[in-house]
Design a protein around this nucleic acid. Structure first.
Ligand SMILES: [Mn+2]
Ligand SMILES: [Mn+2]
Ligand SMILES: [Zn+2]
Ligand SMILES: [Zn+2]
Lengths: 151, 151
DNA sequence: TTACATGTTGCAAGTGAGTTGCAACTATCA
DNA sequence: TGATAGTTGCAACTCACTTGCAACATGTAA
């Protein structure tokens, strides 16, 4: 991973700066970790990746930055069915919401976009007169491989 | 609340007994608390209600009983958007799944059943070859009252 | 450039939800 | 009624996350 200071600022960084928030060395690093993540990361994984760029960064700063991103609706917080412990996972909020499926046997996480999901959210907003800010659909069960397995 | 020992066993108790599980005094009490709950309760609220029937019951027994019920698919565990702290809430699994909406302003929790939700789960099972065991759709936002309020 | 005000950081300590080890107990069944 | 295996309560523990605070860094405006 290139040093974030020499990089073109990512979308998260640009978004926070446009909202008048201070951009510190630590924030730039944490934002770049979240931005370039290939899977869903928990707070301690984010800290470990951030430490490769600055071993001084404290886990408190990771938690505070994640709270900042949550408050600004820039990341989503996931349970992923709490398959291992009570920790939470984070991902940059995508253009279009998706569903998370967690296999209770092998632990694999699958994502799925669906028109029906978009329509369902529309129905909630209309029928319940409820303005949706954040939505989370998580499903636990058995994936294709595990479904057709003994025991 | 009447003493659970003198009651007709509730559905939770009958279900656990039919699966060959031992029915202790403590379990009967905790099951009756969950069964007769009017709202979503967290573990410490369940303990407080159980204490009215037996002040000796330990919170460990509440957690162990909730885990038992979860493993048997008899209760659902909810985040309710973690509006206050990291605790979880519990409710007896209903015949038909429903959606939970949490107002980020007043904290009100609303439930909603939807055909689209049922169809969406069907689509997931078919299109993703994923056998659903448990599903959780939680939405955060602003309820009808709060939506049309200043500040 | 520099000084300033205010926001941010790291450290240490704390909180709160949930779990574990284990000896004493008890539901179930022969 | 006694044997057996599952369950309980207690104490201690783990883990995720938060808070208080003094030192520090950022953005802004001289
Ligand atoms: Mn959670
Ligand atoms: Mn409910
Ligand atoms: Zn699987
Ligand atoms: Zn409201």
């Amino acid at each position: 991973m290139p040093l974030p200071e020499t990089e073109v600022p990512g979308r998260l960084q640009a978004e926070l700066m446009s909202r008048g928030l201070r951009m510190t060395r630590q924030r730039r690093i944490i934002l770049s970790v979240v931005e370039t993540a290939k899977q869903h990361l928990d707070a301690s994984q984010i800290l470990r990746k951030a430490h490769k760029l600055d071993p001084q960064i404290d886990r408190v700063t990771v938690y505070r930055t994640l709270n900042l991103l949550k408050r600004h609706g820039l990341v989503d917080e996931l349970d992923l069915m709490h398959l291992q412990g009570e920790k939470h996972y984070y991902e940059r909020r995508p253009q279009r919401d998706h569903i998370h499926m967690a296999c209770l046997r092998c632990g694999k996480i699958t994502e799925f976009e669906s028109d029906l999901f978009d329509r369902l959210k529309g129905q909630i907003q209309r029928d319940c007169r409820f303005h949706i800010v954040v939505s989370r659909l998580e499903v636990g069960g058995y994936c294709g491989q595990c479904r057709s397995l003994p025991s």
